[in-house]
Each structure stands twice: as structure tokens, then as C-alpha cells.
Design a protein around this nucleic acid. Structure first.
Lengths: 338, 338
DNA sequence: CTGAAAGCGCTTACAG
DNA sequence: CTGAAAGCGCTTACAG
């Protein structure tokens, strides 16, 4: 019972003895509008059913110029932050009949550019992008060509696109202030060597909080190159902490830095929070259920995903719309680690 | 500088003063084969470059019948097991110029069926599917229509499809035997109420290991309905363990059951492994870095993803091929929890 | 109430 | 060496 060619609108038309136009109208629910008789409509519907007709969306996409597909470009789909984001984007897109195609950039400019290129070939209706720092030019041309695009997690201050992020400055500043309020004085900030806005803002928040205190408090910043392997990150963090006995607390600016940090502290056999307090951006199972549980600055991922899809869909339906910016509130979750 | 219509092969043809045929040939690298002069070839290439030509893959897909897109249907993309699988599938597919479109079924038959339907409309070249138990009929018709499909993590014994899984029986049996060898006698198996092969095999492995011991050893099985929320799972596990003082160890058959289990034990303030030993299927950051770290039966996710893509690509390139089955070896990772 | 025809952007057998 | 033409499976303005 296998066909090499699947059944098309033409087959139905032939079977019923009518034009493909009529079939198309009926199948698209325009029977009423086109005033096609109920008998004929039923006959066409029944025949489509009987022949097990499946509309070819590729053909429809070519004809209408709408593929009902969103391109989602993340840093790494296996990172829990992006995996959850993907899921919420999927759910939200699904409600409007959109599917999503994902790609991981590994935070690599070359890869990101080539992925964006490939996705454009495939006529995505819109793009939800966690940009790498070197992809500004390509995003700009996307915008210039009026392609719907929304940046997530980070954006380019010099580029007027829609974006949705979190108030990273406030998150980092509040987190640091919480540590200070708890009596920790020598706070190490472990962050990524990055010029991207989400990272610079977090660093700025930390610095602002530190500077608001007296000079007795002293900070320290460890900047990890973002192309290190996980093992190298762990090693780098461990050796820095080991060499800095004065430090009483560590603040990690991303979830995988936090994970690497816990691994480092474990190697050093540091007791949390007695020997060193820990705070991290982003939440995950390890932070939530590990022992001790880790305090975090949690991002509202579901809301971020929802907003991103909402923006992209509104951009798709009305090309002229102005860029929209959403800056959501991160939430401090206090646990046992501080 | 924005165009409503992007540049097509026709624009290039017009610009150069040549037919679209010729343009298509050189753009597809067939200049040599079609013996098109180097001058002309260069001119066409230059013009394409200058006009910033981007081939429309939707049109190509319609014409050639190949979309170079794989459909990946998982249970939940935000679950670390599937998130990692997705990443490895992506990487492997990428090497052959394929992109992947993902969907989450939530282990819901209706949703799975509708997703498969939607993806078929979109002319995926192949499907990598983590099936729900009620989707057998739809998978069967996929196979009957000679669509390339490979099942992952589980399969239907009564359906002759390609699949790649892990030796779940051996994994569960070895894990149980390890607990027994460590002196634990009263092992609780916490599993899903499921008739799917990966689950029944794990339960069978556990039972086999238990029955190989004397009657002094006694087991207990808690079967969690798979439609419970996370909180309900935690509650169900907690109350069962709380009501079974004789139990000295717990073996969880999936990663999220393990996570819920740890949460339950934390609520009950049970000390691991002194009051209760813990073993779980699947690995994750929490198991690896939590305190105490949790022993696991780890699946070779990268290899699973690679194999799945390898099979699907070979199915795509030669439709006649026989189904292939891969049963990979799980690995026991002993940590502090037993 | 219904259909012939054009066209979305490609590829490719066929012809010269 | 190169091109005219058909066709992938749809949708839709136009005509009657």
C-alpha cells in the first residue's frame, strides 16, 4: 500500500470531477465565502479523507511565502536555561500553529553566522536569537530586510531591534547587596570574559553594590574566557579560589559557571556556606536540590519565551511595527548557601 | 535598502543575459559537467554574489522532494536527557547538511499523533521519534509509506522499525545486583506505570536480580502514574518511603524520578546513604555534583544520537534498506550514594 | 456557483 | 556550449 507520490489536490479534483481551485477553496474553509454547495463541499471533504490527503506545506510555503516556522538560535540547546527556553518557545509557538527549528551556536561567531545564513535560506517567518557578540552585522541586515527578529538574553545597544532580557544590572546588584547584608565582605565575582551586554551589566551591578559600601569591603573579579572547556573552567576557578584565602563568598554570573564553581569548591573541599558562601545566576535542579541548596538569581524563563514569541508573531503579522523591548525582573531565591 | 521580494535565479539570469537553466547549473556546481565556459561561470557567480542571492530552499524542497530537515519528536525538550539528545542529533545532522525541527509530546498520545501529523505535512526527510505508547498505529503507517523513521529510547516489539536503545534489562539488573552486593537487602524500585518496553525491561531486570538472591532479600515496587505533576511525584514517593521503614535503598528508573526522589528524601530528612542508598537511571549535574553524589546507570546519549542520525540518513539515501537495531551498553557510575 | 490560468523559485530531461 | 519548457503542489486574482 505504499505510494511513491503522495496524493495531491489534483488527485482529489480528478476523483470528484472538479477543478483544483474548488478543492483548494473547500480545503481552506472558504466554501461558504466562495458559495460552494454543501453537497460538493461534503463530497470533496469525504474524498480528501478517503484518499488520506495531506496538504504539502512546502508547496503552500512557496506559494504564500509563509512557512509558519520560527528559527530559534541559542547558545547550546543542552544547557538547561536554553532547553527550557526552547520548550516555552515551542509551547507558545504551537498555539499559533508555528513550529520551531533550533540551532546551537556554541557562542561561536562563525557558526552563528553560518546558521543564520542557513536558516534564512529556509525561509523562516521569524527569528528568535541569542546572539553571539560578532553577529551584529548579520542581525542588522536581517532587520534592514524587514525580517522579524527578536533578540533574547542579550542585545546590541547600538542596534535598534526588539529584545527581551532581564534586568541584569539590578539582579547582580541586589544579589551582591544580599551577600553584603549577610555579612560577607570579600566577594569574588566569577564571570565570563565577554563584552556582551548581559555580562557587562551583571559586572556593573556587582561593582555598583560593592562601591556603595565602605572601603573595608573588597571585591575581586575572575573573568573566564568563554571558549574554555568545562574541565578548564573548573580548574581555573579552583586555582583562583585556592590562591585567594581572604575570599568569603563567590557570585557566579551564569548557570554553567555556577556548576563549574560547585565542582571546584568540591575539589577544594570547601564547606558551603561556612567557608565560602555561594550565589549564582540562573536556577537548575542542582542548585535547587543539591546539599546545601544554592541561592540564585532566577530568570523568568517561561515569561521570556512567551514574550519572545509574542513579539515575533506580532512582527510577522504587521511588518511595519516598531521594535519592542522587554526587560523582565529576575528573582532572588534565598537558599542554604549564603 | 529593503526589498519585499528577495533576489531569485531569474534576476541573475536577466542581469547576466542568460537563461535560468544556466544559472542553476553553475550555482549547483555543475558548470564543468555541463561544459559552461569559465568566463560565463565567473560572471554568474560574481553577479549572484553582488545581488546577494540566497537560494530559496523551500522552492528547492518542493522541486526535489528533499527538505534536508529531520523531525525530532521527544518527550520533553527541557528534560536534560532529551536536551542532550537533541544537541547530539543536531551536531550529527549538521555534518550532512540537515537541520532539525523538534517537538515535545509530554508523553501524551494525542499530542504525539498530532505532532507527527503536522511534521509529515512539512515534508520531513526523516523522523527520529521517542514514541508514546499509543502512537504505534501512526508509526506503522509511516513505515508502510516508506518514510525513514528511527525510534529512540523505546520501540514497539510488534513493529519492525529501526531503533536505538540501551540494554535496559542489563542496566537495571546490574544496578540491582550492585546494591545487593553492597549489602542492601530491601530495595525499593521506583518506576513509571508504563507498558513501554524501556520501562518493562528495567522492571524485569530488577526482578531478575532480586529473584536470583535468597528470600531474605525483599523488594518493593512503586509505580508512579506518568501524568503526575512533579510535585505530585515527590509527594507520592515521600509518602511511600515514609510508610515503608524496612526499605534500605531506592532505585529510580528515570532521571526525573530520581530528581523527584531526592526531593522526597530531602523532605523526609533521610541521610543518604546511611539511612537509604540511592541509585538512578540517567545522569545529570545534580547526580554528579550534589552532595552526596548519586550513583547512576548512565546512557551513552551522544552515541545514541549519532546512531539515530546515522540510521536515518542511510534510510533516506536508500529507501529499500532493512530496519536496523542498535542496543547500546549503559554504564554504571558508582558514587557516594550507595 | 465554478474553472482556467498564472505564478511562487527552483531543477532537470530534452533538444539543438 | 546553452535555452525553452515542464513541473513540484499549492493559492488566488480574474473571468464568467
Amino acid at each position: 500500500m505504499s505510494h511513491m507520490r503522495s496524493v495531491s489536490i489534483k488527485d482529489i479534483a480528478q476523483e470528484v470531477g472538479v477543478s483544483t481551485t474548488t478543492v483548494s477553496f473547500v480545503l481552506n474553509g472558504k466554501a461558504k465565502e466562495k458559495r460552494i454547495s454543501d453537497e460538493l463541499k461534503d463530497k470533496i471533504l469525504k474524498t480528501a479523507e478517503r484518499l488520506n490527503y495531506r496538504p504539502n506545506q512546502v508547496a503552500r510555503g512557496l506559494r504564500t511565502g509563509q512557512t509558519h516556522t520560527l528559527g530559534l538560535i541559542v547558545e547550546d540547546i543542552s544547557n538547561p536555561f536554553f532547553a527550557h527556553l526552547a520548550r516555552f518557545v515551542e509551547d507558545e509557538a504551537d498555539k499559533s500553529g508555528y513550529k520551531v527549528m533550533f540551532c546551537s551556536t556554541e557562542n561561536n561567531d562563525e557558526k552563528a553566522i553560518s546558521l543564520l545564513y542557513l536558516l534564512r535560506h529556509r525561509q523562516m517567518d521569524g527569528f528568535i536569537i541569542i546572539p553571539t557578540s560578532g553577529i551584529e552585522k548579520e542581525i542588522r541586515s536581517l532587520v534592514n530586510e524587514k525580517k522579524p527578529v527578536v533578540l533574547v538574553d542579550r542585545y546590541f545597544p547600538s542596534l535598534d531591534t526588539s529584545y527581551v532580557t532581564v534586568d541584569n544590572f539590578k539582579g547582580a546588584s541586589d544579589g551582591t547587596k544580599l551577600l553584603l547584608a549577610k555579612g560577607y565582605k570579600h566577594i569574588l565575582l566569577v564571570t565570563l570574559e565577554s563584552d556582551q551586554v548581559q555580562m557587562t551589566e551583571r559586572e556593573r551591578g556587582y561593582k555598583e553594590a560593592m562601591s556603595s559600601k565602605s572601603l573595608a569591603e573588597s571585591g575581586d573579579i575572575l573573568r573566564i574566557p568563554y571558549d574554555l572547556t568545562h574541565a578548564q573552567m573548573v580548574k581555573s576557578i579552583a586555582s583562583h579560589i585556592d590562591a585567594s584565602p581572604g575570599i568569603d563568598s563567590a557570585f557566579f554570573t551564569t548557570n554553567y559557571l555556577g556548576v563549574a564553581g560547585l565542582e571546584a569548591l568540591r575539589q577544594l573541599k570547601k564547606v558551603i556556606p561556612d567557608q565560602i558562601a555561594v550565589l549564582s545566576f540562573d536556577d537548575n535542579d542542582l542548585f535547587r536540590l543539591g546539599s546545601p541548596s544554592i541561592s540564585v538569581i532566577s530568570q523568568p524563563i517561561r515569561e521570556i519565551g512567551k514574550k519572545a514569541v509574542e513579539i515575533i508573531l506580532s512582527l510577522i503579522s504587521s511588518k511595519s511595527e516598531e521594535p519592542r523591548h522587554y526587560i523582565l525582573k529576575p528573582e532572588i531565591v534565598e537558599r542554604e548557601s549564603i
